[in-house]
Design a protein around this nucleic acid. Sequence first.
RNA 1: GGGUGAUUAGCUCAGCUGGCUAGAGCACCUCGUUUACACCGAGGGGGUCGGGGGUUCAAGUCCCUCAUCACCCACCA
Length: 880
Amino acid sequence: MKLGKTYTPQEFESDIYALWEKAGCFTADPDSKKEHFSIAMPPPNETGTLSIGHALFLTLQDLMARHARQSGKDVLWLPGTDHAALPVNALIEKQLADEGTDKHAIGRDTFLERTREFVASSRGTMIEQMRAMGASADWTRQRYTLDPALSRSVEETFVRMHADGLIYRGARIVNWDPLLQTTISDDEVERVDETTTFYTFKYGPFEIGTARPETKFGDKYVVMHPDDERYKDYAHGDTFEAEWINGSVTATVIKDEAVDPEFGTGVMTITPWHDATDFDIAERHGLDKQQIIDFNGKLLPVAEEFEGMPIAEARPKIVEKLKEKGLLVKVDEAYQHSIAVNERGKGVIEPQIKEQWFIDVNKPAVEWAGKKRSLKEVMQHVVREKEIDILPERFEKTYFHWIDNLRDWCISRQIWWGHRVPAWYRRSEHGGEEIYVGLTEPEDDGKEGFHKWEQDPDTLDTWFSSALWTWSTLIDPELAADESLTFEEVLQKSQDYKAYHPTSVLETGWDILFFWVARMILMTTYMTGQVPFKTVYLHGMIRAEDGKKMSKSRPESIVDPVDVIGEYGADALRMALMMSTAPGADQNWSKGRVEAGRNFANKLWNIARFIEMTLEDTKVDGKTEVVSMADHWMVSRLDEVCKQVDDHLKAYRFSEAYGLVYHFVWDDFADWYIEASKHEINPRLLRYGLEAILKIVHPFAPFVTETIWQTLEWTGESILMQQPWPKIDVKYDDKKAVHFGEVQTIAREVRQIKAALQLRHINLYHSGSTLLQEHAALIAGLSGVGEVKEVDAGQGLHLTQTSETCWLDVDKDAIDAYVKKLQKQLTAAENARDGLKKRLDNDAYVKQAPKQLVEETRQQLKDQEELIESTSAEINRFSN
RNA sequence: GGGUGAUUAGCUCAGCUGGCUAGAGCACCUCGUUUACACCGAGGGGGUCGGGGGUUCAAGUCCCUCAUCACCCACCA
């Protein structure tokens, strides 16, 4: 087989992927004696197609997975998808609404059936696109958060946490989204700045401020700071009559430190049902709570004439009424504050008191490192003690800060799509109720005075199941289906769990550090006694080309990876994404980088093509050894690069690694070694170099490298992906490598002269000294010299850059121009020399700097002095 | 109100534990149809590393401070 004349990735990428998959290259082997390496792929939402963000994480994780395999490890990169409760649920509800119906009309079962169908169809697209990226994930182990084994993990976790008192049901203030009709967790709330009107009203003897007059109907407590001198005449518990929106109310004075005396009048009324701070105050003092706004965002009967009105409509009318009553004191229309919205769907959050399920993060109930700790403490402990490393390290600070502010996690959602809460209730005819939490529905024992058991209609927060991902995916599905086994037994008997947990690395975006990473740490330490992963690598976001977020409201800003692959190939996209990625740093999308990636792949293609053509008629056999000085140089560079790239990859410095590979292949191998090969071929080494290059480029650009490998005749049936990282076993001599460096210097010099003087033809003379006799032709070839002649004495242009000399036959004008250049060079060299001298004259430097560095400086000084000497000699020669 | 990050060539960005004359890609200028590649080759221009101060033999890199931008967190009614 031969490589085609042009690089057209679209023609081979899918075939190559099929080849790998058929050969089982992606499949992990838990029984392997090799060191295990595992990555749990962050499960994407099944709501459609691959985004550029997915492309980035696939690229980085694939890079790690491939490099780990090349390093002799048994690799599991476990892929899967997430049921994405809220977005999917909302999407289906919207479809229903468009059809003129809703979920209640079709019923829970029909709704779920329909959702399953939707998810199944969009999952296929997603997975195909991941494959197109070259993701070497183990598809035989693909998982889904609603798989039976994973669902069992969810239920077991819930039940165990409940038994340990870590999950509780309670009426607390929650974030209610009236739009999506569900609660959401604190982390899903987004703050949006808004300019609104701030009103100050008269309330009995006080003045109180609010931006939300519509919540104030039931207010009957005024709160102030206990130390506020202005109000020292009022004691805690004092009551007074106040004229308010709908008549007179009896209000009570409450003293609480939560009030900021500096803000407004230092007095406020509270609405415990609709405000978290107020709720806390009410709890502290045992105050009444009253619901003012219903779950649809409309006013309740307490509002009397305003009953049933949506907030937006009611607000100005309420203000108007208070104004008429003479209670409006002040209006500030430029009040800046932030409102809470659901980051999904942007519904405005209405705090409400609701009975929900929570995870208690403060109760010391987990045995960890020899001590009973709360979930919070365990989360802090594992990162502080470096059981988990977070990269970049600064995110550890963010992580700790988040934990410090963490409150109990509301895990129940009023939607149907997801894991249903494994709790059942039966109401007593006398008003009370019994709760049962367990894996299966409780038997109905017909207890007297009780209704039948009914399961909690709510589902769990998506992140509850995602939090179990590193280990719930490693459970053997057959074992999980066996109800006779305890969950502990299922876990301990699962091969994959034993081999691959804790996972080696978690690679994900910093934006889900709290949602996912922190929750995984919380749940996994609790359930398995292990950390979920040893290292967390956080990548940045990809923004649009203009530096702003890619957003649906600006469709033109969104880059579709599938389009990019179609135009440039997956390798080009991968390299574009790796080229300038730094941990935790966002990057702007740039088409230029994709083109650069494509160009590099094309370069590689042509290097292979050249070698293929060159070797076609050449017999290649025997041992690979270095012959020419170019060989020595190339192998020494290759040796260095292989080691450095390996080091960079191990340390997660992906762009550094890529940069090294890129420049070695392009600048060193193609531009110098191959050019030198045109002068003197070492077929075996050409082959050797190409093989090594394909191996080190492979994790970055798997498709093109494998395609070339498959085409090369001598690689036979082997698969590049399964080849180990190159170890340079050809002996080379560093000194000879340096000689090639001198040849490069001369060749560069000749090129510069040619370019500077615009010369087309130039001849090279040399005195026949050892180096030049052997390699003058090489220099000529590398610098485009016409003829090479041996002469006795120097004439024309004298090149003095190296330990050897040669001359160029040029005319007077050229020599004058050259002298000018030499003078410039001389000045630069003198400056450099003075700088170095000054440094070496400095005792402190000589004494304190590393010896090696000082030695280097001395050598440089010597070099500069030699250069000055020879350059001035040249100038003198031409001036005379 | 706290916190974090960014500020390096015209543009987009690397620069790991302080140490050769600060790099890349794209763009720009000059030359080149050498049989791997114009998705190319050769050469070149362009930066007081945001401002100021400090530590050090040595600072883009560490510390302080200011400025601008971005983001995150927080119960200011």
